[in-house]
Design a binder for these strands. Structure first.
Lengths: 261, 261
DNA sequence: GAGTGGTCTAGACCACTGT
DNA sequence: CAGTGGTCTAGACCACTCC
């Protein structure tokens, strides 16, 4: 076994057994290298393994620390029914809370919201999902929800709608109307669309360089990719959203009810 | 920007634009180092970034290759209802297929299955979920499902049952009876338990060294963690499973039906 | 055996952070 | 300014794969 792996193992063991506690600072690299009788680059290699596993954080000019678990945001599948119920409520009630607040339990005033709209054409992937020809005009909406300035977004969302469908209500084409009270399901309600079901497809991978930047991810954190496909009561796909969530502070919850014997 | 980042960017760009095609071999490190006028360790640092992002694979003694996407296994939430329906079918029918076959579309004979049982005591975490005192005797069952020798398992599963509940049927305590025709829901059926719902909680993170080993994960792949909580018709939690899935070839699908207006 | 990636060294210099 | 991590070098030797 390589020297750097032995060292990584030793440190890993220390962290797992609690000898090195969360938040604790490790000795300087030079000192650690001396303790393990190795060179600094080799010791750094060992540390970089632990960074990749999400066990430690390195802070330039400060030190290396045992990572403390982050507070998790739960995103439950009953949000969809909750959103649907809310879509036909009076405006005052819709104003009060959005889905993120439903998930996090935070107040509206704690959250900052950013939206950007543009027009695109359906690529092969989206055309297949929507069941429309490649090149069909789509409205692409990009969202990010932050916890009031302080730190990185909870989620990066790219949402797609068929342009000609939503154009029935011109207000839906303008990002300036965001955050729309009552969310997308209320927007769809204004043009006579009711949702029948929501399908969500989930996978995970390491972040790209851009995602790490945008979501403020440290190394050693995964990205959860969630594609949400909303189908209307007429069986047509109405909205497709690609959501990227930080793996270290997101927990998705799905409940499947079963029919009785 | 660091030299190694510039190099990583250049290669990343080549891969994304398709100039470097999936499966294609990159020049040897020494040659690449020469091309980018840098030392071998620095070039290696650049490559290791791309490995961490899952863009390339290094094979010792062979070369460095652009990674080709892996075939995905879809795990759909309707498997639960499917399993429930199957649990009361005749033995012959139950023998024919298991859930993994349902997910993958493969035949029973394509799959190898390994199970191991042991007795443990509930730690704080499991005790909370089951709603039993810490230290309660549990039956811990460990499963792995492989695609017939060839390569790494689809999933590592640790499943927990309250020991005294399942002891009503001693056959359920013996791993030698696996794979049990009809799966866990049929096992529970033999002791008079019917499931009411299944809750699944999902998160993702980089693999630990052990998981990378057990799931045969290359570097630069995430692990999806799925905790499945099965609740009986009497409202008690019956089974808790912790499932670890390779992020590069697993897609989870959940469908949420909505009630009509 | 030729060619590939894997590991390691010893030291240099740079960049960032906090006092 | 002292102390920390970040980057880089030039070269050595090892281990693996395939012919």
């Amino acid at each position: 076994m390589a020297r750097y792996e032995q060292i990584a193992d030793a440190l890993r063991h220390g962290i797992r057994t609690g000898r090195l506690r969360p938040g604790e600072r490790l000795p300087a690299e030079e000192r650690l290298a001396a303790r393990y009788r190795t060179s600094v680059p080799t010791l750094q290699r060992a540390l970089s393994e632990l960074v990749a596993e999400g066990l430690i954080d390195k802070r330039h000019g400060v030190g290396t620390f045992v990572r403390t678990p982050r507070r998790r945001v739960v995103r439950s599948s009953d949000r969809h029914q909750w959103e649907k119920d809310r879509a036909r409520r009076p405006r005052a009630e819709r104003l009060r809370t959005g889905s993120t607040e439903h998930d996090t339990g935070l107040e509206v005033t704690d959250l900052a919201f950013h939206a950007e709209y543009r027009e695109t054409k359906a690529d092969e992937d989206l055309a297949t999902v929507f069941g429309v020809p490649v090149g069909t005009r789509l409205l692409e909406r990009m969202y990010r929800t932050n916890c009031r300035e302080e730190d990185a977004p909870f989620a990066l969302v790219h949402s797609y709608l068929v342009h000609d469908v939503v154009a029935a209500n011109p207000d839906l084409l303008d990002a300036a109307n965001e955050p729309w009270p009552g969310g997308t399901q209320n927007q769809l309600y204004t043009i006579g669309i009711e949702l029948d079901r929501v399908e969500e497809r989930i996978t995970a991978r390491p972040p790209t360089a851009e995602e790490a930047e945008a979501l403020g991810l440290r190394k050693g954190v995964s990205v959860i990719l969630l594609r949400k496909i909303c189908t209307g009561t007429d069986g047509r796909v109405v909205e497709v959203s690609d959501v990227r969530l930080p793996g270290d502070r997101t927990e998705l919850v799905f409940t499947t009810p079963l029919t009785r014997w």
